[in-house]
Design a protein around this nucleic acid. Structure first.
Lengths: 142, 142
DNA sequence: GTAACTGCAAAATATTTGCATCCTT
DNA sequence: AAGGATGCAAATATTTTGCAGTTAC
């Protein structure tokens, strides 16, 4: 199982034009094995002291740049990252799904099956991107 | 005009159970005269060196606590604050309107006239709050 | 007069940058 | 071998906390 994610992470890195290194593999495996979104601090905790904090910053940034992960806005100032779906091209994210934050267990999920509803804005606004973050309680916490 | 906001800010502070002080008045006047949302840094810049940075932190926090302003999540890690509508009670925000971030001028607007569309989640999720942030170009920047 | 707000100093935390070294391709 | 990734040190930025003095009610 860990092996599966190992190989998948290598393939993903290559597919996104990133060189395969230990740190990138390990961080990507964390994303692959844990479905929810992760904050910088979560990753640091899960990695133990294996990598420098600076490396994590740079790795996450490179993942975002290459369209491997995307950031999810939260109102508590903690940016979280989640894996992108295949449609995400480098630099152009098309994550038109809804993010769910559980107020009980604090996990963040990407509800891939739920599309962001279409929305109509007043005259003069052009829409580029829509982010929708729903909070409440997830199934495990009911 | 500035006078109008002065008096309005005093009334708002009292209505929300906050004592009226110079700093709170000045910060609230900024929110009242500038319709868009503001980040901590924006406020600090507009205030000049009149108040300590710590005071601004604490003032914003007290405004949020008392339901005077609410925070808007953005994906660039900068929390922005905007005035709440009347329906916002202390601690219980009911901001079911859409936030719009202009990618050109970087202003954030609360589109009060636009309600967040209703959404249906998979079984097991209970919805507590919905945040919707649309980005693109605002009318002034077209 | 009392409770709460403010400024200052300082601590704690988070993020960025430069550079030398090491690793991937 | 060359370019990029990493670790370390340090600079910078952000946020929090404690305390003494001041102000609002």
């Amino acid at each position: 199982m860990a092996t599966v994610h190992q190989e998948e992470s290598i393939a993903l890195l290559k597919a996104h034009g990133l060189s395969v290194t230990g740190g990138r593999k390990d961080i990507l495996v964390i994303f692959l094995s844990r479905k929810g979104a992760l904050a910088h601090a979560d990753i640091e905790k899960k990695l133990g002291a294996r990598y420098d904090r600076v490396t994590i910053y740079r790795t996450l940034q490179s993942f975002v740049d290459k369209g491997l992960i995307h950031s999810i806005p939260t109102n508590d100032n903690s940016i979280r990252y989640a894996l992108c779906k295949d449609e995400c091209a480098s630099g152009h994210h098309h994550d038109h799904h809804v993010h769910f934050v559980c107020k009980r267990c604090d996990n963040t999920y990407c509800l891939d099956s739920v599309a962001t509803p279409s929305i109509k804005l007043p005259k003069g606004y052009s829409i580029n991107q829509v982010e929708m973050v729903v909070s409440g309680q997830c199934p495990s916490c009911q």
